[in-house]
């Protein structure tokens, strides 16, 4: 079916572009998903002093590197948005590709890190800490993968100069993924 834009989509009674409003609501629903994991983790962590013994095995260096990777990919995402604002779709697409590269780099570090930990015998069913460690980071990593796939589609359209408003919207989602990691990093790596 020919994709068409319904009149409902073009209206903006609130003054916020419709697609952007939808992304904000998506983020609201994501906050409570991650909020549920993190709140559950936090109350267990505070109630289980022995988890500090398990947490020393996480590798702060890789976690910090991944934080840097995500922060930098957030920078390229916002630069893509800036390019889209100026109407330069090709430049926006290039910055989005850089962001996708950041996502891939993040996943590579993650894979390396998990590989090492599993080799050492720390698997999700080892104990409560590792269960939360893999679950929380795993849900986050799945968001990274989804974000990278969506950005690929947006970059393709942006390169052709179409749907430039989507660059900002996917960027919002990406910054949120970055934000989650900003909190996961101290919770899983630094607090020892």
């Amino acid at each position: 079916m020919a994709a068409f834009r319904p009149i409902a989509n073009t209206r903006s009674a609130t003054g916020i572009p419709t697609a952007k409003l939808a992304v904000w609501w998506l983020l609201v629903s994501e906050i409570v998903i991650f909020g549920g994991v993190l709140a559950s983790y936090l109350m267990h962590r505070l109630g289980h002093p022995e988890w500090a013994n398990y947490a020393v095995h996480t590798q702060t260096a890789i976690g910090a590197t991944n934080t840097l990777v995500l922060l930098s990919s957030s920078l390229t995402a916002v630069l893509a948005h800036q390019a889209a604002q100026t109407g330069d779709g090709k430049k926006a697409a290039k910055f989005l590709l850089a962001t996708i590269a950041g996502a891939c780099l993040f996943l590579c570090f993650k894979a390396y890190e998990w590989h090492g930990e599993i080799e050492e015998g720390f698997v999700p069913w080892t104990n409560g800490f590792w269960a939360f460690y893999y679950t929380a980071a795993g849900i986050h990593a799945s968001h990274v993968i989804v974000g990278a796939i969506i950005m690929a589609f947006v970059a393709k359209d942006a390169y052709a100069g179409r749907d430039l408003h989507r660059v900002e919207n996917v960027g919002l989602y990406w910054h949120f993924v970055d934000l989650v990691w900003i909190f996961l990093f101290p919770l899983l790596y630094i607090a020892k």
Binding site: R5, I16, S72, L75, A84
Partner: peptide
């Protein structure tokens, strides 16, 4: 408001230069 925002690209009011974002980074 009734404006046709849907097709537009968000805020046209103030576009920061790239250096602004690099500083924040």
């Amino acid at each position: 408001h009734g404006h046709d925002h849907g097709a537009g690209g968000g805020h046209h009011e103030h576009i920061h230069p790239p250096s602004h974002y690099v500083k924040i980074w």
